[in-house]
Simulated assay, not measured.
Amino acid sequence: MLTGKHLVFIGGDARQLEVIAQVIENDASATLIGFSDMHRTFTDTEHGELSEATLSQADALVLPIAGMDNDGRVDTQFAASPVTLTEEHFRALRPGTFVFTGIARQTLSDWCQAHSLRLVKLMELDEVAISNSIPTAEGAIAIAMKETEITLHGARVVVLGFGRCGQTLAHKLRAMGASVSVCARSAADLARVDEMSLAAVEMKDIESVVATADIVFNTIPALILTAAVLKEMSHDCVIIDIASKPGGTDFRYAERRGLKALLAPSLPGLVAPKTAGRIIAQSVSRILALETDGLHGEEDIWS
């Protein structure tokens, strides 16, 4: 339970609404900033203005999964314009206050460190990232089914990367009857791919494996599908890039070559915001409850 805890939420998408609902259910109270156009009501919440006074009362600041840009901007689907934070706002937070975000860019990390705030990068926690990979994989598969004229059963599919999303995606594609090849760099990942009875391909051989693919899923947040690689691919191949922006595909060259290449980040917020929000809320609540109960065994989850 979060009795007595007060959280300040700034911006976000539909996932954030579920996080709010869950922490209120756990007996916390909340101030909402950047939610003026929200058509949903919650008990024990209030809409507030961004001010140092508001932030000074917070036990935790909850930012969206996309976090804060380096210029302080926090995007929101529930107001006409984004919310802009400054270092003064972080200075107003009490030392030791939790700052929850999905990802943290350099400015956010620097400001939290400068003012002794406990920054929790939720998407770096296994408990969040592994669970979040399920709606990500389902969303990517849904796009593949919509954008191709073939069944996934029997399709020649390549998954680039074997992190949390890559593993879940490869597993689900194989269960649907696809012929799945996985490109990865580390020997350990390639061994696990082989153990799962999938085709393990070293990254240096990417050009040969994508040349015969019907669908390529990229999960690597770095330029991996370069012009040289794209040149080897069939014009009928569909690329679904689920890595964080800007993705890992040379989209300019893909368009020039007539390849269908789709950038689809943040799929959980689009295809399953309620599930994704509950995953986030569970971790936020667990971490705050540990603090309430005086347990300090997990300091490595924040920086």
Rank of each mutant, 00 (worst) to 15 (best):
F78H: 14
L223C: 01
A28I: 02
S51Q: 06
G48Q: 07
D300Y: 15
D241A: 01
Y253T: 10
A28K: 03
F100N: 12
A289D: 02
T212Q: 14
K146Q: 10
V229M: 00
G258S: 15
K146V: 01
G139H: 08
D110C: 05
I20M: 01
E138K: 09
G163T: 02
H89D: 08
E202R: 13
F98D: 00
S186R: 12
G297W: 01
I24M: 08
A80E: 10
A140H: 06
A178G: 06
R91G: 09
G163P: 15
S283T: 06
F9Q: 04
H47M: 06
D205Y: 08
G247W: 01
E149H: 14
C112W: 01
D110Q: 09
L173Y: 04
G154D: 06
S197Q: 13
L32E: 04
S179L: 12
K260Q: 14
M123T: 07
H39I: 10
Q22W: 00
V193M: 12
D27W: 04
V159F: 05
R156D: 09
A184F: 09
V216D: 11
E298V: 09
F162P: 12
D194Y: 07
R278F: 13
R257N: 06
L169P: 05
I220T: 06
A199W: 07
K260M: 11
L267Y: 11
I224G: 03
V238A: 12
M233T: 02
L263M: 12
N70G: 02
I220M: 05
T219L: 00
L50F: 09
H153S: 15
N132L: 06
S181K: 06
G297V: 02
D236L: 08
D37F: 07
A188H: 13
A104L: 07
S244V: 07
I150A: 08
G247A: 01
D194N: 11
D300N: 13
D241V: 00
S109K: 14
M233R: 03
L55N: 08
L160K: 13
I301P: 04
L223A: 07
L270V: 15
S283E: 11
K146R: 14
H235N: 09
E87C: 11
T45E: 10
I103D: 00
Q167P: 14
A187C: 01
T41D: 14
D205M: 05
E255N: 15
I10W: 10
S36I: 09
I287V: 03
E195Q: 14
K204G: 10
A272Y: 09
S234F: 00
G102F: 02
R257D: 09
D69E: 15
L263S: 14
S197E: 12
T226C: 03
Q167F: 11
